[in-house]
Structure formats: C-alpha cells, structure tokens
C-alpha cells in the first residue's frame, strides 16, 4: 500500500485533484480565501502528513508538474505580445516606473529583513515577492532561495496588494487609469490584475502588461543588486 501511496501517480493525482477542487470552489465563491492555491494546500499538506509522505518524496513525485513552470514562463511571452498593443505611446513612462518599482521593491525587502536580522536565505527567497509566481520561483531558484518561502510571500503580497491597493491608490491621489492598473499589476501580479480588471478594461490591460515587465526587470535587477549588496 505504501508503495502505491508514495508513487508518482498518486502524488500527481493528489496535486491535480486538489487544484481541481480548489478551482471548483473558487468558481462558486470568489473570495480571497477561496483562492485555489490556498484550498489545494489545505487539502494536500494534511494528506501528506496523514499518509506519512515527506516533502522530498512529494517533491520528486510532483516533478512532472513543477517542470511545467518553465514552459509556463515562456508562454507569458505570448501574453505580453497580446497586451503590448495597448501601450499607446506610454512606453517610456511605463518602463521607467516599473523599473524603479522593481528596484525599490527588492531594496525595501532587503532593508526590512536586514533590520530584523533575517538570515540570508530568507532575504533571497523574499526578493521577488512582487513578481508573478512562476518567474519569482525561477528567480529564487537561481539565487538558491527557499521556493516555499518565495511562494508564500508572493501569495501574501498578491492578496494584500489587491485588497489594500485600490485604497492606497486613492489615498495617495493616483488618478490615471493607466497608473492604477500598472501599479496593481507591478505590486501584486496576477491577483492585483484581477482586481484591476474589476476597475475597468484599461486598468486590467496595463496591470497584465505590468506583470510580465515586472518579472523581466526584476530578474535583471536582482543579480545586479546582489552583486552590490555582497550577501
């Protein structure tokens, strides 16, 4: 029995099945806490603990799924290609704002972690927290970060950014639709983008564009900052 439960087949079924249940619940009740990732984790982790499957076994068994992260990141190139048509002469300001946003995002994480005496592996895992999950994991893996910690901070960042985002934008007097969309996508990736889509078509389109740009720029910014910071 143990052989069956520890097999790749069972682990893949558990993972895809839990994700499927998550999306089913999410399509009925669309709230931040019914996020498919959260539901799937709540189903998978206790099951693994109950069946005495440790993480290395799970990681090995689910490798076929995590392998798909690579093609998924490449596929984001198609999404960016579709969205770039919305640029309308904003290209320079968009590149500047997202580049500075990316630098400020990484540096602020490092500074706060440093103030709190967090170990290096924690800092490195958190650097890409505003980046869309597949790219954030690639960046973290490259810097030898802890993927689970990257996943959790990216997740929390997305939910938090999309919940407080509209309010922060209002308080700070950010008015243009382009700026609102861009800020939500750059700070809170996909989750921020779904919030931006609710605000309007323009906001949604620019948020979607910001996801890909933030990913690319942060992937370039992090190795540069790491070589300056000398961690």
């Amino acid at each position: 029995m143990k052989e069956i439960l520890h097999s790749d087949t069972f682990i893949v079924i558990l993972t895809i099945g839990s994700y499927y249940i998550g999306t089913l619940i999410n399509s009925r009740v669309n709230k931040p806490f019914t996020n498919p990732l959260l539901i799937a984790l709540i189903l998978i982790i206790p099951t693994l603990l109950l069946l005495d499957i440790d993480y290395p076994t799970y990681e090995k068994g689910s490798h076929i799924i995590s392998f798909m992260l690579g093609p998924t990141v490449v596929a984001l190139g198609y999404i960016l290609h579709k969205q770039i048509a919305y640029l309308h002469g904003n290209i320079r300001s968009i590149l500047i704002s997202v580049s500075i946003g990316s630098i400020v995002g990484v540096v602020s994480v490092l500074l706060i972690c440093w103030l709190f005496d967090c170990p290096r592996e924690v800092m490195i895992s958190m650097e890409p927290k505003s980046v869309t999950m597949p790219i954030a994991l690639a960046i973290s893996e490259r810097s030898n970060g802890i993927l689970a910690m990257t996943a959790i901070t990216v997740f929390v960042c997305g939910i938090f950014g999309s919940v407080v985002g509209p309010w922060v934008l209002k308080v700070t007097g950010i008015k243009s639709k382009v700026a609102k969309g861009l800020a939500l996508g750059a700070a809170a990736h996909g989750v921020g983008t779904s919030r931006a889509i609710q605000m309007g078509q323009v906001e949604g389109a620019f948020a979607g564009m910001a996801i890909a740009l933030m990913g690319i720029l942060t992937a370039i910014v992090i190795p540069i900052i790491e070589s300056i910071w000398k961690m």
Binding site: H63, L137, I146
Partner: peptide
C-alpha cells in the same frame, strides 16, 4: 498554461511543510 499556472507552482507551495 497561463490559465492554470497555479497548478504548476503548487509543489513549491507544499514545500511550506518543510
């Protein structure tokens, strides 16, 4: 792929248990 990217990073999220 992009519509189902949550599935692809689930294994990393499960790493939470470690």
């Amino acid at each position: 792929l992009t519509n189902n990217m949550t599935l692809m990073f689930l294994p990393a999220g499960v790493g939470l248990m470690a």
